[in-house]
Design a protein around this nucleic acid. Sequence first.
DNA 1: TTGTAAGCGTTATCAT
DNA 2: ATGATAACGCTTACAA
Lengths: 307, 307
Amino acid sequence: VREAIAELAYRPDALARGMRTGRSRAVGFVVSDISNPLFGAIAAGADRVLQEHGYSLVLAVSANDPDREAEALALLAQRRVDGLILSVADERRTSLPQHAAHFQATVLLDRRVQGVQADTVRSNHTLGMYEAVDRLCALGHRRIALLAGSRGQLPSRERVRAFRRRYRTVVGADPDDALIRTGEMSRDSGYLGTREILAAQHRPSALIAGNNQLFVGALGAIKDLGLSIPGDVSLVACDDSDAARLADPPIDIIDRDPSQMGEIAADLILGRIADAAASPRSMQLPTRFVQRGSVARVGKAGRAYER
Amino acid sequence: VREAIAELAYRPDALARGMRTGRSRAVGFVVSDISNPLFGAIAAGADRVLQEHGYSLVLAVSANDPDREAEALALLAQRRVDGLILSVADERRTSLPQHAAHFQATVLLDRRVQGVQADTVRSNHTLGMYEAVDRLCALGHRRIALLAGSRGQLPSRERVRAFRRRYRTVVGADPDDALIRTGEMSRDSGYLGTREILAAQHRPSALIAGNNQLFVGALGAIKDLGLSIPGDVSLVACDDSDAARLADPPIDIIDRDPSQMGEIAADLILGRIADAAASPRSMQLPTRFVQRGSVARVGKAGRAYER
DNA sequence: TTGTAAGCGTTATCAT
DNA sequence: ATGATAACGCTTACAA
């Protein structure tokens, strides 16, 4: 019999097995943009763990559009995926609550959705933001702009909150709300926001970009305005990237470990599949500020790389 | 009846349907590294087209390891995916021939595999390389290094061939083979290769990095060596990236459209699923050289941005 | 221990 | 047209 198996290269049909057992051994992965290396790294981490356990990752790109997200969820439900790893496009407009019952395991990536019982993997965006504000304020920065991203995503709100709170603690006054801008998590939004902010008469001395896309836009705008980093403006980006490492000067970042996020998400999924009744788990990973050379003492224009 | 469908949110079970019809409406996507934005963009393009047609993309990361690639193919075969989009890790060691019969549609991304009947999407790496060599030679470069990547991947061989051929045509002599280096498609390989090449006594005046990872390593090495671009060395990268656009100076690239590659791959898959008997199709997309400021006339050290 | 049968949710076929 | 029924390939439960 074993000979025949080997000879015919027989492999059990996963569809039939899935139909009979009620488990497809597939996990959906819904993200706004898989060409963003942050999500790519998360996917890679998750896939590594899932592959080891004979599970596959079914990708679905939402393009930050709640309607496409809804279609993706419907399609994945139809495919009877056992689990779902989801970076909700907009917490205020997500259709997850309508679909959640179809997935026996759901892990939310850095999001909070009302009325859905799900495990979560979260980054502690507060930690790194505190360190960044400490550093900027210690170097004399008081007018600090924040490209915060969308209000429909938890990390954006968390960063704004941490920024305000720490600024108040350190400086003893509230930050200028006009310098805190919400908007799309896109290059264009980062570019336009930065141009507006830096064209104002009373220009901020530092800028924090809320994700890698906003950072790309911000850096482009700073270049186009002919400003120098950190002489004219100090810059901090959230999440690491080749562009941040290789820019001149290299850009200070609020860093985290995205592939670990993916691995933990996969672990949570597998754990919940094994024990559907377990109480919801929430894992939190740290973020940390990394100095590189894009932040200088305020008012010392031209003296780059000061530490 | 329709009321009941709406009321119970009934959706046909894709597993059962797949079992009965013999079509899973899923397509496998096997790549070395999904955190590489090049593959991310290809995946995004493919997913956009496939989603429109009710197909899902099943991701499998091979990490450039032929063994993991083999496992991925076996798992996807077991899942009865209708099609396969595959960027083979190493053409010399791929197990695709053993698995190909399980997939009724296969599209190879920029690879050639002996004995496998598959549609292909190819980039014409020759075009952009010709333009790059023309440009470099026109500016007086004669000692040009090429970080070519792995010999097990068609684009690497195609670039070496195009480089040699065009150099010979333009210069009238063969290029120095010691400056053409094969190796892994990794940052480390790019870093180490660049350090070695640029530390030699008779240093080349220009360097071409064969992909975005090699480029990242090369740029890091150039920085660490304290060399300036393009004053000390001119640099050209294959494939665009944020890092190339935002570097100072911005890096000249050999560009192509990866998301279009993904879309075309998906189109080919859908076409072949519709007509399995159609003769194999091979689509070729152009590459083009884009000037930005990282290439200068040879011997005019320090005169950056010369055009 | 070994073998047989039922049934998972579809779709397709075949009577009516 | 309409409706009942078989079959896809597997797992599992139960019978021999």
